[in-house]
């Protein structure tokens, strides 16, 4: 297996390179970019992130937990407070809402950590270089050794400033 790196200067050029590569059947792609880009995301076409599931689960857990906690605690030691019912649902809505947000937010970040960091951390990132956090876009293609020429050709046509084989 070989790894070819193409360095591009703009998000549109990078998206173009990705489209060309995928058109040619290269799906093992990694793109490094200094900022998020919808064009690149569309070109890669990997669908929406799984993070959204985490948010939904977090919100539902939070609001359920909040109401259950408040109602259970109110009846665990029932005390008359200001002549109100033990379980005052309207008053409990506020903490229900806040815990909905809290759990939703915390699980969203957990989803980001899991899908953005932990599940991707085992990949080989030897192609990364500091300029990818500056103004360079990197497009890394995993291919068989005999396909390196074809990949270099596509990347060159897509407008890469520099194309090199990272590992052979």
């Amino acid at each position: 297996m070989a790894q070819v790196l193409g360095i591009l200067r703009t998000p549109s050029a990078t998206a173009g390179a990705v489209r060309e590569l995928r058109g040619a059947g290269f799906e093992k792609l990694e793109v490094y970019s200094p900022c998020p880009s919808h064009e690149i995301e569309h070109a890669l076409d990997r669908g929406p992130s799984r993070v959204r599931i985490y948010t939904l689960v977090g919100c539902l857990t939070g609001v359920t937990l909040a109401y259950l906690m408040q109602i259970w605690m109110a009846y665990d030691w029932p005390l008359v407070i200001g002549g109100k019912p033990f379980a005052s649902i309207p008053a409990y809505t506020i903490i229900g809402f806040e815990m909905n947000i809290l759990f939703g937010g915390v699980l969203t970040v957990a989803g980001l950590l899991i899908h953005g960091f932990f599940l991707t951390s085992r990949r080989d990132h030897s192609a990364y270089q500091p300029s990818f956090s500056g103004d360079d876009f990197g497009c890394v293609v995993d291919c068989h050794d005999d396909q390196v020429g074809r990949v270099r050709e596509i990347l060159g046509e897509a407008g890469c400033a520099e194309v090199r084989v990272v590992s052979a």
């Binding site: 005390l79 008359v80 407070i81 200001g82 002549g83 109100k84």
Partner: peptide, 19 residues
């Protein structure tokens, strides 16, 4: 000694309640 005491509902720690 209000039956619906305003002081009770605002105490966060149940330090005042109606017996």
């Amino acid at each position: 000694h209000c039956g619906a005491a305003p002081c009770e509902s605002v105490c966060p720690v149940l330090a005042t309640y109606h017996n």
